[in-house]
Design a protein around this nucleic acid. Structure first.
Lengths: 241, 241
DNA sequence: ACAAAAGTGTTCTCCATACACCCATGG
DNA sequence: CCATGGGTGTATGGAGAACACTTTTGT
């Protein structure tokens, strides 16, 4: 954490698109819970969604993918724009300065980070088990939190989470995106659990199976050997159609 | 159109948020047709969606509303973000220069209009009869076009229109937004015609009435005096609920 | 009387839900 | 055997599409 690092920090960044940031609501599924990936700024108790800026030579979508890769280690993440947050007072200069100062970065009053930004909200669904959460330069923690225990976040990030979840619920059946929260192969029970958690309601097993299997989007693989004293469940793989 | 106007043009603009533009797909309904409002750049045959930039002291939504007001004369327009267009090569510097030159504006190579922009796509539904289409400084025409006769548009604007229409269709029943294309009061037939046009299919009258009236979102007003030799239709007003 | 508007009734199909029940199977 | 997984049958209710028919009403 030597000072030379700090001096170089901004200069080492590639040319960026001004005024625009990306913030990502990254969701995973574990222990029958929806989880969200949050950063904590160094030496503070301030939490935020993972985010970043757009390099001038990146398509918007590419930027979001890069940011996700940096925080999770994953390529080919399911990713979707859901809203642009553009209120003129959505950010808080004092807080911004404080957060940067906590990382040893002093911002001049005309620093670009203190200018107005709009933020494009992306939401991403990942296979929890495959992620390697990695803090960025400004944070000392990048961890999963239960979706119903999200702490207070900076700026308008709590609103972002709320909107992202709503977007997820609305698109769950329509876009068949629940699979992205599971590993390559999964049992029908696990899938049902994902649906129940996201929708917040119990589903009758037999009806759920009929519905999902009727969509012709799953390939049945083999039995899962559980070692339990009962029939082993089948494994399925999502094949789209 | 004296040169002094041109010299002052950019300087007269308020401070803008860099890199970000707004483009609006403005839809109206007339003669049983969906119509879209398009600009033609001065002294060219290039068409574009109405758009603009974000003043530093405007919320994003306010910017979109202002732009819409400037082109249609209307306040309180139904307005919705639907997508951010952010490919790095979505714009074309040569075309941009040509369009500006056609208005007598010469752009230096480092002019801000030649920098990279992302564009936030808004779509708007307006009461056709109330609009006063008004060209902007760079265009000599602002007119309604049949939605199925949209000419080639600049940049990625044709794609914007396509995405906006898709968005409209998906949200029609869900968000009950069709009413925004009609005057304050309207007949059931007119409303049905809006739905049929947007969805591109015939609907059985009696079923449509049952469905819409069952939603409890319409207030029945009075009879419309048509002067025709038949029963006059009722007028309805949208009351949301 | 006429023509269009408005309302009602009926039938069908489709789909989601709920629930009961059976079979399969790994230990 | 038994606990869980997996599958089927079936009744119900609601939504919506198709169609027929009646009633209303302004000129």
């Amino acid at each position: 954490m030597q000072n030379s690092n700090h001096e170089n920090f901004w200069e080492s960044m590639p040319p960026l698109l001004p005024s625009v940031s990306i913030d990502c609501t990254i969701l995973g599924f574990h222990d029958n819970q929806l989880k969200i990936l949050l950063l904590r700024f160094k030496n503070t108790n301030s939490f935020a969604l993972p985010g970043g800026f757009i390099d001038l030579n990146e398509d918007l979508q590419e930027s979001a993918q890069r940011i996700l890769k940096e925080r999770t280690g994953l390529d080919n993440i399911y990713l979707e724009q859901f809203y642009v947050f553009g209120d003129k007072n959505r950010r808080d200069d004092k807080l911004q300065k404080k957060l940067m100062a906590a990382s040893g970065l002093l911002l001049e009053d005309d620093h670009f980070l203190l200018k107005r930004f709009i933020s494009i909200g992306y939401f991403a669904l990942v296979d929890f088990t495959k992620t390697i959460p990695t803090p960025d330069f400004l944070s000392d923690s990048c961890e999963w939190y239960d979706i119903d225990k999200v702490p207070e976040l900076i700026f308008d990030h709590n609103e972002m989470v709320k909107k992202a979840l709503n977007h997820l619920r609305l698109g769950l059946d329509e876009k068949l995106i629940g699979f992205n929260l599971l590993p390559e192969t999964f049992t029908m029970n696990e899938l049902q659990s994902v649906y129940e958690t996201i929708l917040g309601e119990k589903i009758v097993r037999s009806n759920f199976q009929r519905k999902i299997l009727g969509l012709d989007i799953l390939q049945r693989i083999e039995k899962k050997m559980t070692g339990a004293a009962n029939k082993a469940p089948y494994l399925y793989r999502f094949i789209g159609k």
